[in-house]
Nucleic acid binder design. Sequence first.
DNA 1: CGACCGTTTGAGATCCTTCAATACCAGTGG
DNA 2: CCACTGGTATTGAAGGATCTCAAACGGTCG
Lengths: 234, 234
Amino acid sequence: MQQLAVSHSPTPARVESAVCRGLGRQAATHLVAISSLVARRPGEVVFCEGDDAECVYEVVSGTLRLYKLLPDGRRQITGFPSTGHLLGLAPDGEHVYSAEAVTAVTLCRYPRASFNRLIDSVPGLARRLWAVTSDELRLAQDQLLLLGRKTASEKVASFLLMLADANDDGDEIALPMRRGDIGDYLGLTIETVSRTLTEMKRDRLLALPTSDSARLLDRERLEALAGGAHGASV
Amino acid sequence: MQQLAVSHSPTPARVESAVCRGLGRQAATHLVAISSLVARRPGEVVFCEGDDAECVYEVVSGTLRLYKLLPDGRRQITGFPSTGHLLGLAPDGEHVYSAEAVTAVTLCRYPRASFNRLIDSVPGLARRLWAVTSDELRLAQDQLLLLGRKTASEKVASFLLMLADANDDGDEIALPMRRGDIGDYLGLTIETVSRTLTEMKRDRLLALPTSDSARLLDRERLEALAGGAHGASV
DNA sequence: CGACCGTTTGAGATCCTTCAATACCAGTGG
DNA sequence: CCACTGGTATTGAAGGATCTCAAACGGTCG
């Protein structure tokens, strides 16, 4: 996990994240000192690609979408970060993607300058951030395989299994994002996503109690469909 | 840049890489001490996805392809690392992609255990590796946009511009990889790559003196075709 | 209820793939 | 020197997966 957020609850010094515990009491206190909480409602923007990256964010609650745009408006969603994920971590000057709230979200915000000083002064933090970024890179490379070489059904199956693994609520999945978001994540259109889900429902691979939730009915066949590497190894 | 390699030439203590200079003489000497050189001929494998990641590599010369496979053999190439790039950097246990030589290559190999100890003992190294990995992540995210949302022509234009930027030989580009490699990098077939290149030649966008080299004739139109983000910002 | 927004479904068009043949190029042996 | 061979690239024709355009459906909220 990549948790870093510190508590802003009544007991300010209480540390919730694995990283903070790893860093020791003093460093954790520093993190609390430089952080602040921000909230966004569904659809609201947190930051845009090209903005000066003045802050690093950690998701405290809710789900966001990260995306890049082409000049004509075509959109590629690169991820749906939720609780515990870090945003805007790249060490240089500008955000390289935009971030919007999918659900209502709360974020823990760290000013970049303070954050960078912390990296220098806290032993182990740089290595921790490296590990977090490496894991993101690994996921991005899995996504390259998905986008470049998988069919629509394989993409959707991979996506559902990825969500199931992340939510670890067994086979019950929340789909807070819209069909269009899913399409822009998988390199498909809204219609193809919808048709593929309908087809999977017809084939008894899954149930769609509502349009924003799903239940996996046949994980084995879904995994076969997804091919290797929906996040897991081959 | 992400250079780290140390010299194995007659003067063993001489340090060639930017990182080593940044790290100081003593750390650089440590790097030399744990490294060894390996060579591979075209088509030979350096390591495979799923192998224990016993070593980290830096490319000293030549070009490689990194790729992931689906069970049925479909392939997605994730990059063509060349001189100065690091391979197998992920901090955990297994390689997450395979690496093969495209041209003849020489690599500088660091045993992972020693490398990890070095990270702990050399201040600044972890942060440096974080920066390197962040940059790879940024490129991977650009590639997500390309694979998910660009057309064949846009993909090929982006690819050519990316190579031109990397080689910085102006508008002369070496294409050491085969058409099939380009296709598997761009999520296209061999035939589509070939047709697209032919079409660009017909449109006077580029010249193809041989099948493994190209000259950009109209960078402006190519950049317009590539859309934003072929590596550069929008 | 009725408007709105997102999803689903349908029909036709298109880009890219697939399958197949031809061209090209370098190396080898006659 | 030239034919032959193997590998890669190019070109052609046909098919198909996905997209586009368009309409119908369904839930939510005032």
